[in-house]
Design a protein around this nucleic acid. Sequence first.
DNA 1: ATGTATGCAAACCATTTGCAATGAC
DNA 2: GTCATTGCAAATGGTTTGCATACAT
Lengths: 165, 165
Amino acid sequence: MDNNKLKDQVKEEFITYLNIKKHRRTPERFAILDHIYSAKGHFDMESLYKEMSESSLRVSRATLYNTIDLLLECGLVIKHQFGANVSQYERAYGNENHDHLICTSCGEVKEYKNSNLFTPSQQKRLQRFKISYYSMYIYGICSKCQKKNQVQEKKNKTNSLTTKK
Amino acid sequence: MDNNKLKDQVKEEFITYLNIKKHRRTPERFAILDHIYSAKGHFDMESLYKEMSESSLRVSRATLYNTIDLLLECGLVIKHQFGANVSQYERAYGNENHDHLICTSCGEVKEYKNSNLFTPSQQKRLQRFKISYYSMYIYGICSKCQKKNQVQEKKNKTNSLTTKK
DNA sequence: ATGTATGCAAACCATTTGCAATGAC
DNA sequence: GTCATTGCAAATGGTTTGCATACAT
């Protein structure tokens, strides 16, 4: 399987990072990384905790948060805070580069493939800032909610007309 | 003053929104909008609360949160969650369009002017999503922290050499 | 007069922290 | 053997909520 290759690669990268930082290579840390790279898409801490509770190696919330911090620092995981109370995460590799469409009405988050990187002039202006990754959040109203709103507005109109009479 | 003109404009827009939604036009709501449009840049709820406590019309935290929700909904204020625990806000008008450079090392957030809008082909693909605004967050290491890290790494090297002896 | 909006304080809940026990080195 | 890491449970703190009072309509 192709995903196993990726898993090995990120594990290697994680080990290198742990060695440099002189952190220990615990089974919990590898299990968490492995689990995160078993699926694409967004996840939050609660779902990760529950999923891992049912897996071979159960880990505590504290360890989950600790390990996520390490994975964020070495760039293997990306963190998003779209507007809800819970932070969302996703693996950094094996996902296509994408922006996020966030509906401010229903909260739905959709991925939107968009591979426009920085132009040379932008790169130049950013030269002193070492980019590790970037996130584009596009807020608006999704098509479903637009329709819902239209229906709602029609209702309101009818109501105000009848009440005015 | 030019800013007063903007204040009047956004107040008008807010009134229109309140009327449509049949919300009341309370002095607190206008005071909060006015205060937010008195300065550029980011702010959080705590600083807004403290500043307004010292102003002519004191408002409670509850009202602050209620009103910010309204201002978000009608698009007069933008909300950011850069990674720290507190949400950051900024006024939507009178600020140049800008992206955000967020240093993952020290947490500093810098604005970066960047007026590249969506290309026609992107617009087309987004046609069913009604964009109200978008935020570009660029994570990385700022120049200051890069320097700090270099110094740190040199130290580590020296230490490991001496300990190896 | 009516019912929405405010202020206060308590509740909520994701995340962080303190500490004893574990296990990587 | 040493000390970083884990798991547990308690603490934290930004945000939300419930309810009595105030006030916009």
